[in-house]
Design a protein around this nucleic acid. Structure first.
Length: 477
RNA sequence: CGGGCUGUAGCGCAGGGGCUAGCGCGCUCGGUUCGGGACCGAGAGGUCGGCGGUUCAAAUCCGCCCAGCCCGACCA
């Protein structure tokens, strides 16, 4: 079969690529590392965008748009920022047939251009807080790319906020981390761990970076969103000051936070199976597909029955209808399963006689027969049920593959075997972190909230010193 | 950016200096089918990844480049 999906057991990476291509989510472009997001993939992103954007608005943020091109000198203003991004910048050197006086960088992120503008817009504490988000594309010249997970150009949102105090900026950082957690769990049905990144893993230019981390089906961690407390780093680099109520002059405090089209990759790897994409109902491009099953002699009647049902469903759901007589029902079942549609409605002569329809759920394959009049209600209930059961299943999987490990040999063995998330006492030193990475390929994904307390009285792996943190180790994407 | 594998019709592949480049699936048209990837008949579809070289002759041999996948070093 030409359209076979490589089973996960055979090759997890091939499986992932097969799903992306065959569920028509994206395709390769002629330019290395770039991809075309196809309508079904883009629909997933649009539904994500809508939900996240609503959450931003509900927390007082407004959208704006800053330009793609940034003067090269801007990137160089903040020392860590330059160092972090220099190797992955795309630079425009020519325009209008002439060499530019100053090269322009294609934004890898927009802190610098945004803070250059904030300098103009902020004078007084009355101008604060400034809570701006933008939806944009960015470009990072990655060495090794993977569809959705790491592409040269990707779509994301980046929030950039300015505050009068460090406390406020910190609160904002954590508030947005929590927004991401809620989005991941409520919409993507993807359980995530939240916590602080170590210095080795934090964003170039941040004082502190927090992230949400999800476990994929191959037990590797995927960083799915980040929120940074920037301190006064960019305010100082761009000299953004404000006058306080008391009349003194102070640098502004900042946060920035983002999620990207990488979330589409996260969604795929969290739920899908060997038959194709499994999309959580709240984000699925199509939520319910109606497939009529007819013979030539009853075609007209069945199509009328199915079409009427489809139209009722379309009033409430993102619904599609597949009456094509070129393919058999069985073929359509497989096809729509590959595309990840959560609920399939089958209607044939037998259903017509009994005034029923058959509902099949994508996640388990289970079928049930329901009264045709109650079909929309039943579909609604089933979508809810699938949404929560996907979350429960993903969470159970993560828990089964999460272990608390005190002993370094055991940690090594853990990552030599199936791996997963290992929660281990850590002495807080970059050296031991690097050694673990060197010897196991696992890195510290996050330091969860309250981890310092849990580490009290314990002995750190590797060094044997008193532990300062309980760290979550995992192999990461 | 290093190591490995790959690139021939939309997809999966065969062919490996010589005459008109094949097969399966898909696609188009006509007909029969239809409750888990149906069938018959007729058709359309190829700069053999690109550029250059060797040769009377290159999909085939050689060089360079491009792209994809895997494994490493760097990253959302």
């Amino acid at each position: 079969m030409a359209e076979r999906i490589t089973p996960r057991s055979e090759s997890y990476s091939d499986w992932y690529v097969d799903i992306v291509l065959q569920a028509k989510l994206a395709d390769y472009s002629p330019v290395k590392g770039c991809m075309v997001i196809r309508p079904r993939g883009y629909a997933l992103w649009e539904h994500m965008q809508r939900a996240i954007d609503d959450m931003f608005k509900a927390t007082g943020h407004v959208n704006a748009y800053f330009p793609l091109l940034i003067p090269e000198s801007f990137i160089q203003r903040e020392a860590d920022h330059v160092e972090g991004f220099a190797p992955e910048l795309a630079v425009v050197t020519h325009g209008g047939g002439e060499q530019l006086e100053e090269p322009l960088v294609v934004r890898p992120t927009s802190e610098t251009i945004i803070w250059s503008m904030y300098k103009k817009w902020i004078q007084s504490y009355r101008d604060l807080p400034l809570l701006i988000n933008q939806w944009a594309n960015v470009m990072r010249w990655e060495k090794r790319t993977r569809l959705f997970l790491r592409t040269t150009e990707f779509l994301w949102q980046e929030g950039h906020t300015a505050h009068a105090t460090a406390e406020e900026a910190r609160e904002e950082t954590l508030r947005m981390l929590e927004v991401y957690r809620r989005f991941a769990e409520d919409y993507m049905a993807m359980p995530v761990l939240t916590g602080l990144k170590t210095d080795a893993e934090k964003f170039a230019g941040a004082v502190e970076t927090y992230s949400i981390e999800a476990m994929m089906q191959d037990r590797r961690a995927l960083q799915s969103g980040t929120s940074h407390f920037l301190g006064q780093n960019f305010a100082k680099a761009f000299d953004v000051t404000f006058q306080t109520a008391e009349g003194s002059l102070d640098h502004v405090w900042a946060s920035s936070w983002g999620v990207s089209t990488r979330l589409v990759g996260a969604l795929i790897m969290t739920h899908s199976d060997d038959k194709g994409l499994v999309a959580p109902p709240r984000l699925a491009p199509t939520q319910v597909v109606t497939i009529p099953i007819f013979k030539n002699k009853n075609k007209t009647e069945v199509l009328a029955y199915a079409d009427k049902l489809h139209r009722r469903l379309a009033e409430r759901f993102r619904a599609e209808y597949d009456p094509d007589d070129a393919n058999s029902p069985g073929w359509k079942f497989s096809e729509w399963e590959m595309l990840g549609v959560p609920v399939r409605v089958e209607v044939g002569p037998r259903d017509m006689e009994n005034n029923t329809v058959v509902l099949a759920r994508r996640d388990t394959g289970e079928k049930q027969s329901v009264d045709v009049e109650e079909a929309p209600e039943a579909v609604a209930a089933l979508l809810e049920e699938i949404q929560s059961s996907l979350f429960a299943r993903a969470k159970a999987f993560r828990e089964e593959n999460t272990r608390e490990i005190d002993d370094y040999d055991e940690l090594k063995a853990f990552f030599e075997a199936d791996g997963g998330f290992a929660i281990a006492p850590w002495d807080g030193s970059p050296e031991t972190e690097a050694q673990v990475k060197e010897e196991t390929k696992a890195t510290i994904r996050v330091l969860p909230e309250g981890n310092e307390k849990q580490a009290e009285g314990r002995t750190a792996i590797v060094s044997g010193k008193p532990a300062r943190h309980m760290a979550v180790f995992a192999k990461a994407y």
